[in-house]
């Protein structure tokens, strides 16, 4: 027990000794992991928002309620006759509400606020070729039964290509920053060893075990990594909280599930500790030879 406290105490002491370098290392861990975590959340948001499109809903035609189901069915038949249309499905108001419930299953506040009746019926169109959306859109404009036409293709294609580019850049940055974070941690450990070289020399001389000498340094690296990870998790959760409050459109979700956040928060935090472990092991490698 006293040994354990000794080891922790040593790690903390050397912490205080190099506030500046240690802060730099923690900052690097923080930035790289915050970036990684935000990228994950962003990616999840894109997935959530494109899922309908991926299921083939290229165009959504929202319908007027007051013209009745017969007008709706007529329009469906008309649309199905278009050459460009591969398939089209009618979604009545009940189905619309059900879908809405599924989308916001984890957000009962919104569900409570929305009256099932305000959700309109719609026709979901899948095109033979997504590039043909304009001619379909053109023919549907002006139909009395059409309330609004949402073309998802263009926006989503652009979004997806941007996302792909961003992910590539993001992965590159995360790798680069994580590497530099590990190197910075290794550096703080080297400085800590240097600051305590006299003590380490005496410890070796009187026969302290190799791991007994190493553990405080390893702990120091792990603690730095965990602090950086915790800050990153905190920042991203806070950012997500702010962002999820700004959603103005029901159909663009800026909120991911709590489950997703929890799982990745834990993973990012632990990864911070792991990066610290790797960093301190690197920093120790050359020095503590017997």
């Amino acid at each position: 027990m006293t040994r354990l406290w000794y080891l922790f105490g040593e790690a903390l002491t050397s912490f205080r000794r190099n506030v500046l370098v240690v802060s730099a290392a923690i900052l690097a861990v923080f930035i790289s992991l915050a970036l990684a975590f935000s990228a994950l959340v962003f990616n999840e948001l894109v997935n959530l928002n494109t899922i309908r499109w991926q299921q083939g809903n290229h165009i959504i035609v929202w319908l007027q309620d007051d013209l009745g189901p017969i007008a709706h069915t007529d329009l469906l038949g008309q649309i199905l006759a278009y050459d460009e249309v591969k398939s089209a499905d009618y979604f009545n108001k009940a189905q619309a509400y059900q879908e809405f419930q599924e989308m916001f299953a984890d957000n009962p506040a919104i569900l409570d606020e929305v009256d099932p009746n305000v959700l309109p019926a719609s026709i979901r169109i899948e095109l033979t070729d997504v590039d043909l959306y304009e001619s379909v859109q053109f023919r549907l404009v002006g139909e009395p039964v059409v309330r609004k036409i949402d073309v998802q293709v263009e926006a989503i294609e652009r979004l997806l290509s941007v996302t792909r580019a961003l992910s590539a850049i993001g992965i590159g940055l995360v790798v680069l920053l994580t590497t530099s974070a590990v190197v910075l941690i290794a550096n703080t450990i080297r400085m800590a060893i240097y600051a305590r070289r006299e003590e380490v020399g005496i410890m070796k001389l009187v026969g302290a075990g190799n791991w007994f000498i190493r553990i405080p340094f390893i702990l120091e690296g792990i603690i730095e990594g965990l602090i950086g990870g915790a800050l990153a998790v905190g920042a991203v959760l806070f950012g997500h909280y702010i962002l999820s409050g700004t959603s103005t459109d029901f159909f663009i979700r800026l909120q991911v599930s709590g489950d997703f956040l929890l799982r990745w928060s834990v993973a990012i935090f632990l990864f911070g500790g792991f990066a610290g472990f790797i960093g301190s092991s690197l920093g120790l490698r050359r020095f503590l030879k017997v």
Binding site: I202, M203, V206, G207, F212
Partner: peptide, 8 residues
Amino acid sequence: AFALEVIG
């Protein structure tokens, strides 16, 4: 005491 502490 250090010499004894570090060997547990």
